[in-house]
Simulated scan of single mutants.
Amino acid sequence: MSDVNGTPDQAAGPRPEPIRFFGTTWVDHTGGYPARRAGVAAGSLAAAVASCFVLRFAYEGLAIADIGSFVTVLMIVMFAICSALAFRNTWDGFAKRPDPARQASLRGLLTIGFVGSLLAYFLRSLTEAPGEKLHREEYETARHQYEKRTKRRTGNPSKKRRTP
């Protein structure tokens, strides 16, 4: 590659994919990476706590409406199951690329179980940037393949022995 002036580009090869809230600081953990990770952890935990308060207000609304214990239990079970599914789906999404068709079909469940997604984001941000492991594996593979392709040959290829 070359720039506008025709000089070779210094950063030839694959570029790291940015991660939300982190950009490309996850590659070498610079640019305020630890502070960003702490901020993401605190923010996702605060959002999960705020979400639980919203769910509590919804529960109190059902209690005030006096709709019966069956519907109340049904709502609690629904939010618990959806949160567990959202947690698992979000957690698995950090290790491998999710299938877009499956994501589209689960969109409603994942929306209802938003607390589970927030908790998965919080727990992952305690150890790394959410999705860092997946992005690092993909980036290292791309770098390795690029280096393999651009490796220079040694010797004269015309003197190479040919097998009949």
Rank of each mutant, 00 (worst) to 15 (best):
M1N: 06
V4G: 03
G6S: 08
G6I: 07
T7C: 03
Q10K: 13
P16Q: 04
P18M: 04
R20A: 13
R20F: 13
F21V: 03
D28T: 12
T30V: 06
Y33K: 04
Y33L: 03
A35G: 08
R36Q: 12
V40G: 01
S44P: 03
L45H: 00
V49L: 12
A50C: 06
S51N: 08
V54N: 00
V54W: 00
G61Y: 01
G68P: 04
S69H: 11
V73R: 15
L74K: 08
I81S: 07
A84N: 02
A86V: 00
A86T: 08
F87N: 03
F87T: 01
N89H: 13
N89D: 12
W91G: 01
D92Y: 04
R97D: 02
R102H: 10
Q103A: 14
L106I: 05
F114R: 05
V115L: 06
V115K: 01
G116M: 04
L118N: 00
L119W: 05
R124A: 09
T127K: 12
H135M: 14
R136K: 10
E138L: 07
Y139F: 15
E140W: 08
Q145S: 11
R149T: 04
T150Y: 14
R152W: 09
R153T: 10
S158T: 14
S158R: 14
